[in-house]
Simulated assay, not measured.
Amino acid sequence: MANYILKRLLSVIPVLFIVSVVVFFIIHLTPGDPASVMLGDQATEEQLDEVREQLGLNQPIYIQYFSWIANVLQGNLGFSYFMNEPVLSSIFEHLEPTISLAILAEIFAILLAIPFGIIAAKRKGSAVDQTFMGFSLLGISVPSFLLGLILILVFGVYFALLPVAGYMPLSAGLVEHLRYLILPAIALGTMQAALIARMTRASMIEIYELNFVKAIRAKGTKEIVLTVKHVFRNALIPIITVVGQTLGTLIAGAAVVETVFNIPGIGQLILNSVERRDYSVIQGSILFITCSYIFINLVIDLLYGLIDPRVRLK
């Protein structure tokens, strides 16, 4: 197990290197820079050059890259001159809303998708199966921002049941915290629920058709025991895989929903930083999200051995 973890961690290095190179050069090659945003349109070229020199933007781009990487390896993701604080502090300040939203959306997706997927698999080809899969196709097709606007209109404007924007931290109380996150979590988690439901159905149908399931059923085992203990457990690996991937996607892709519901998460931090050309924050945030995604996938891989003893991680 230790060797496997070490191999996975070593395999992360080239991934992070490629991500850092792509992100750094795309950002720096995009027209505009922090100096022009900070000083405005009325600034002279001399003033712009002075600020660029202070920020180190007048150096060759490869020098800027290696300087940034050297700082990252020391745990320093840079400094935001717009927010006047280290990038790592900015990320942690915006991390709680994103994590809370992603976890709640994932819980909603799992609780909705897995029962629907199991029922659809049990009734393969029936009207119930076709109905559930039709709704899952609709869930995949509707963009999260559009669903969010519909939820705001229905539950926030027409019925006035839930807040339509803003965020309350967990310190303000669990109930109030959840009231502000329910609508964005549904908007963000619906597409993931559709993916998990379809994967659950496909995986369980595949297990149902295996000979050992027919043998267990022939012994007179109750259908609920057969489904939960034997079929669902053996179908878990692809389900766990897609759950892990969707969680990583929720953390990385919450920017649009955070913007629609005005949630001060990492997604909104990145969008605001792009508008300001705040290079350090953009680079640091994307690198942080990449590391989070890799860590989630590593945890999912380690769970395989616990779920299915036939899987051996070496």
Rank of each mutant, 00 (worst) to 15 (best):
Ile18Cys: 10
Val19Ala: 08
Ser20His: 14
Val23Asn: 03
Phe24Ser: 00
Ile26Thr: 02
His28Ser: 00
Leu29His: 10
Leu29Asn: 07
Thr30Met: 01
Thr30Leu: 03
Pro31Ala: 03
Pro31Asp: 04
Gly32Trp: 03
Asp33Leu: 03
Ala35Met: 04
Ser36His: 02
Val37Glu: 03
Met38Ile: 14
Asp41Gln: 11
Glu46Ala: 06
Glu46Val: 05
Asp49His: 08
Glu53Ile: 10
Gln54Asp: 11
Gln54Cys: 01
Leu55Asn: 15
Leu57His: 13
Pro60Ile: 12
Ile61Tyr: 15
Gln64Lys: 08
Phe66Asp: 01
Trp68Asp: 01
Ile69Leu: 13
Ala70Tyr: 15
Val72Glu: 08
Val72Pro: 00
Leu73Gln: 09
Leu73Asp: 11
Gln74Cys: 03
Gln74Ala: 11
Gln74Val: 09
Gln74Thr: 14
Gln74Ile: 12
Asn76Val: 07
Leu77Ser: 04
Gly78Gln: 05
Gly78Met: 03
Phe82Leu: 09
Phe82Trp: 09
Phe82Ser: 10
Pro86Phe: 02
Leu88Ile: 12
Ser90Asn: 01
Ser90Thr: 04
Phe92Ala: 00
Glu93Ser: 00
Glu96Ile: 02
Pro97Lys: 08
Pro97Asn: 09
Pro97Leu: 06
Thr98Ser: 12
Thr98Ala: 05
Thr98Asp: 01
Ser100Leu: 02
Ala102Lys: 13
Ala102Leu: 10
Leu104Asp: 03
Glu106Trp: 14
Ile107Thr: 12
Ile107Gln: 11
Phe108Met: 05
Phe108Cys: 03
Phe108His: 07
Ala109Pro: 05
Ile110Ser: 02
Ile110Asn: 07
Ile110Val: 13
Leu112Trp: 15
Ile114Pro: 02
Pro115Asp: 11
Pro115Arg: 14
Gly117Ala: 06
Ile118Ser: 00
Ile118Cys: 00
Ala120Gln: 14
Ala120Asp: 09
Ala121Tyr: 15
Lys122Leu: 13
Gly125His: 12
Gly125Ser: 14
Ser126Thr: 11
Ala127Arg: 14
Ala127His: 08
Val128Lys: 12
Asp129Gly: 12
Gln130Phe: 10
Thr131Gly: 01
Met133Pro: 05
Phe135Asp: 03
Ser136Thr: 13
Leu138Arg: 12
Gly139Gln: 10
Gly139Asp: 06
Ile140Pro: 02
Val142Tyr: 15
Val142Gly: 03
